[in-house]
Design a protein around this nucleic acid. Structure first.
Lengths: 230, 230
DNA sequence: GGTGGGCGTGGCGATTCCGTGAACCCATGC
DNA sequence: GCATGGGTTCACGGAATCGCCACGCCCACC
């Protein structure tokens, strides 16, 4: 199956709505992460590569509007608000805080998905949200566009290679354990297949390192895992 | 956010709603132009420098959804839809045709303005750079006129081919997933029919590439989709 | 009623990607 | 020196994906 490139974070405390939204999104092959609280949500936003945030306003541990405002001080991540309230003032406050769309409950799967598509479509036109370029050596990586360049020339990257690379880049400087990488890329049944990693790390070194036998960026942490040094 | 004055076109046939919307917008110092019909609206879009379109779906002389679709073949102008209908299917159709937001009547001034602000904020749409002519290789494409030329000679392009081409061109440089292209061109029930794409991408290569077997512009991203390189 | 263009669909060879085993390298410790 | 464990590289078969050709249907237009 085709790799989902759109990653959506759903912040919602009510269990059943969360499941409802997740199911809807997954049926369209989006990658979904869930959070139940503001704090957890912010945590996820900081650590994950996301394309969109779906946020319920009525969270137990804090004000959703507040969260949007904080978020907007450093990110343009598209935000779709869900809310039980349908009063004008609520909508206006949320939208002016920086939300991009506001959907009152109850809502249908169809409308939710259509609004998600519209939002993703629009935000992907926007070059500023889209391109946190990552540089190292003579390589340039654009994660949101799934592109890798070496001295300006496009480098061919397979889906698995790209998945692995983006994990390492998003956690640049940190050690990523074998198990963690394997679980993310191949799934939890492969956490012991260290061999896969060796092979694909090898591929990436061939494509990215000046001297693949003397890697300067994609480093191995013997007995632990790998680390990416920008 | 304080740049040039934003110019908004309101296409709406009912006199009193038009006045209502105009008054609201002008109270926020937007420059407003009005049109009462689809034809007039399209005319204005082609000739004026606009930042946004507010469109009523129930126009006497034609289908609003149709208008959005045509518009989207050559422009990314932000579109906010107003409609008396609030059924899911209407919303979905409009949003998937390319609208950016959908507001059901009756609506309040406050919400309308908040949504306009959100939309303008999100899409720093630059009408100057939206040139209708696109060049690559020895090909010239005029999206608004629906014409393709190769070394000056007209190239025959079927409706589906053109639709596909305009999507790729409007997102030149980006990877477009199979699903996304299929949904836009064939509709959401065909998101898994990758086969269609292979065939039509093939057709386009035959017509546009110097050496169709070694494409330089219409590139495949194995396992993901296609990308157009200008 | 014939003709032709556009479209959907099936099929098949070619290409690319992936999993896996085997060989090799190298540091460490006995 | 030699065994061991981890790391790297290579090679190859199977699977998935892709490009391309061909056929038949539909419909618009003679």
């Amino acid at each position: 199956m085709t790799t989902a490139i759109n990653h959506i974070l759903v912040v919602e405390d009510e269990q059943h709505i969360r499941r409802f939204v997740r199911t809807a999104l997954e049926s369209e092959a989006y990658q979904v992460t869930e959070a139940g609280t503001c704090t957890q949500g912010l945590q996820d936003i900081r650590t994950q590569r996301l394309d969109m945030l779906i946020l319920d306003l009525g969270l137990p541990d804090g004000d959703g509007v507040q969260l949007i405002q904080t978020l907007r001080t450093w990110s343009k991540l598209p935000v779709l608000v869900l809310s039980a309230r349908s009063a004008d003032q609520d909508k206006i406050k949320a939208l002016d805080a920086g939300a991009d769309d506001y959907l009152s409950k109850p809502f249908s799967t169809g409308e939710l998905l259509a609004r998600v598509r519209a939002l993703l479509r629009r935000s992907q036109f926007n070059p500023e949200t889209a391109s946190p370029l990552i540089h190292f050596g003579d390589i340039e990586v654009d994660l949101s566009q799934r592109q890798v360049r070496r001295r300006g020339e496009a480098v061919r990257i397979t889906p698995i290679e790209f998945h692995l690379l983006s994990l390492l880049l998003l956690n640049a400087g940190r050690v990523m354990t074998h198990r963690h990488l394997l679980r993310e890329v191949w799934g939890s049944t492969y956490v012991e297949s260290n061999h896969y990693l060796r092979v694909y790390v090898g591929h990436l070194r061939q494509k990215l390192e000046d001297d693949p036998s003397q890697p300067r960026h994609l480093l191995t942490e013997t007995g632990i895992g790998y680390r990416f040094q920008l």
